[in-house]
Design a protein around this nucleic acid. Sequence first.
DNA 1: ATTATATGCAACTATATGGTTGCATACAAG
DNA 2: CTTGTATGCAACCATATAGTTGCATATAAT
Lengths: 107, 107
Amino acid sequence: MNIDKVFKALADINRRTLLDQLYLKNGQTLHELVQHLDISRQAVTKHLTILAEANLVIEVRRGREKLHYLNSAPIGDIYNRWISKYNHHRMEVLDDMKHQLEEENDE
Amino acid sequence: MNIDKVFKALADINRRTLLDQLYLKNGQTLHELVQHLDISRQAVTKHLTILAEANLVIEVRRGREKLHYLNSAPIGDIYNRWISKYNHHRMEVLDDMKHQLEEENDE
DNA sequence: ATTATATGCAACTATATGGTTGCATACAAG
DNA sequence: CTTGTATGCAACCATATAGTTGCATATAAT
């Protein structure tokens, strides 16, 4: 799996909105998803392709329509492989800055 | 705080590398940070500006140098306000798809 | 069969993004 | 006070990104 593709996919507000919509109701068609956004159907298709390539959405053809399923696994992955360590890190930052400034004043 | 700026800031591999470097050693100068990347100093400055605007990095001028401090708070924020719900969501996806396909076969 | 609906493909456009180079400024050190 | 070092500012460039419109195709419904 490609962590960069996942971060890039999540960087766009329309794509995050699409995921939020699928979170509310899974398995929506392209036509349904278009309703929630203010851009053309073709633009939505492009966003869904990007989400699918990041494995955040799984597309299933059914007859003339295409169903879209949320796959939250890559979000779990970026949490485990990237975000969690920063979550533990926390607020030592301000401490470091304080020490730094004190050091400066001692010179 | 602006969740979109945070996501966009995290979408670039060089910016994530900068955060990783500050995680390893906090309070680095621009010059130190440049060493870790394969792009020009000016490019690094731009990335750091984007990180600072997302509040992921705090810049402190000291004499002729500028110190950079990691601020992990916005990462905690996007986790709380966006990622955590998908982390709880998990693998009902495949179940949904299974039901969907069964439904299809019943028609 | 014909019509309506759902999606796909491709060309095109404007702006954003990530990078560069050149020059300027500010401070530290000898 | 001159030199070296750290950073800032601005113009410029190539590519990526996000969007559009127009036309084509495939399936469902009448």
